[in-house]
Design a protein around this nucleic acid. Structure first.
Length: 332
DNA sequence: AACCTGATCAACCGCCGGGTC
DNA sequence: AGACCCGGCGGTTGATCAGGT
């Protein structure tokens, strides 16, 4: 049984207490519950404790009745939100990794503001967190570029500039990790095979450039390409280091730590997210493209980047910020 | 040290769809 | 059929933090 000190929410809340909440009017939820003494605002450690213990015993669901049964003076919605976004044991905390950034960009380009759908592909991340990330980081950059976040210009910048650059960085981290990892041989062999597969596929370059198609095949490769990137980070490594890097092949004995120092074994993670792991594997085998093979195609993007640069600059947009990718995007 | 400003993110709101009666 | 409840989603708010002046 957990103790009060285990509760994550201690001193972490930002909003004012219920006595100074932003609204004094009766809410819809209050009316629904027929209650007049509902608390709002930041959750206390005691409330967190009660909610966690109740769910540990009785499980999730039926949030309104859960709130009452647990003795919480909260709406069901509030309990659900607190649980899903903060108290759930598999919630990841800490910085959004490069791989996660890449995935968010890609998935958002496909699905738009479908945060929960995007979050499903980022295990441990909540829709709220991704939404916040998008609004605070991505939209900020759109603002700096003086273009609408939904404009073609901004989407092209993301697609042809930031995403390839993210891949580059992931690849660089990958290379750095593998160069000092005991699993170098395995990874290199796989990479070599993958390159061969790609270069014998005459349609591949077209697929890369015709990015309306990038979502499925290539993305599956990118996802699995996280051997030192995404997969490694799925286990909690904010940034790949030689000491924490593990390939999928060796990951069963490997472990990495997140920014909070929690060590999670990959096997544990796969057990927690079997669907996700399966989907990644399916995507990878379908694509027949190795991670490194995909990353090698970055050169195509770089060529496009240069072409785009010429096109856009010549076309009259001489904004320095527009092309100062590292400054505006990666140094966040 | 005090103030200002922008960034962050937990929590709230309103709306909608599905299920039940 | 329609009223009601509930859960889920996307949008928004605002307290707090951090860095700059």
């Amino acid at each position: 049984m957990m103790t009060m000190m285990d509760v994550k929410g201690i001193n972490s809340n930002r909003k004012s207490s219920s006595s100074s909440s932003s609204s004094s009017s009766t809410t819809q939820s209050e009316e629904e519950m027929g209650a007049h003494d509902l608390r709002r605002g930041p959750w206390t450690a005691e409330e967190d404790f009660n909610l966690i213990n109740y769910i540990a015993t009785h499980g999730e669901g039926r949030w309104n009745s859960l709130a009452r049964s647990a003795g919480l003076k909260r709406t069901g919605k509030s309990c659900r939100l607190r649980w899903l976004n903060y108290l759930r044991p598999d919630v990841r905390r800490g910085n959004i990794t490069l791989e996660e950034q890449l995935m968010i960009l890609e998935l958002h380009s496909r699905w738009g503001n479908r945060w929960s759908k995007i979050a499903q592909h980022l295990p441990g991340r909540t829709d709220n967190e991704i939404k916040n990330y998008w609004r605070t980081r991505v939209q900020k950059h759109a603002k700096q570029l003086k273009c609408d976040v939904n404009s073609k210009q901004f989407k092209d910048t993301m697609r042809y500039l930031w995403m390839p650059r993210l891949i580059e960085r992931i690849q660089a981290a990958n290379t750095n990790a593998t160069s000092t990892s005991t699993s170098t041989a395995t990874t290199t062999a796989a990479a070599t095979t993958g390159v061969a597969n790609i270069t014998t596929d005459p349609t591949y370059h077209h697929h890369l450039i015709n990015n309306t198609d990038m979502g499925n095949r290539q993305w599956a490769a990118v996802v699995h390409g996280g051997a030192a990137g995404l997969v490694g980070n799925e286990f909690g490594a904010a940034h790949v280091t030689p000491t924490t890097y593990t390939t999928p092949e060796t990951s069963s004995t490997g472990a990495s730590s997140d920014s909070f120092g929690t060590r999670v074994s990959p096997n544990d993670y796969y057990n927690m997210n079997p669907d996700y792991f399966q989907s990644v594997q399916v995507g990878y085998s379908d694509s027949m493209i190795s991670p490194s093979g995909y990353f090698n195609q970055v050169m195509d993007f770089q060529t496009m980047e240069q072409n785009n640069h010429q096109l856009w600059v010549d076309g009259g947009d001489t904004s320095e910020n527009l092309w100062n990718v590292d400054d505006i995007w990666f140094n966040m």
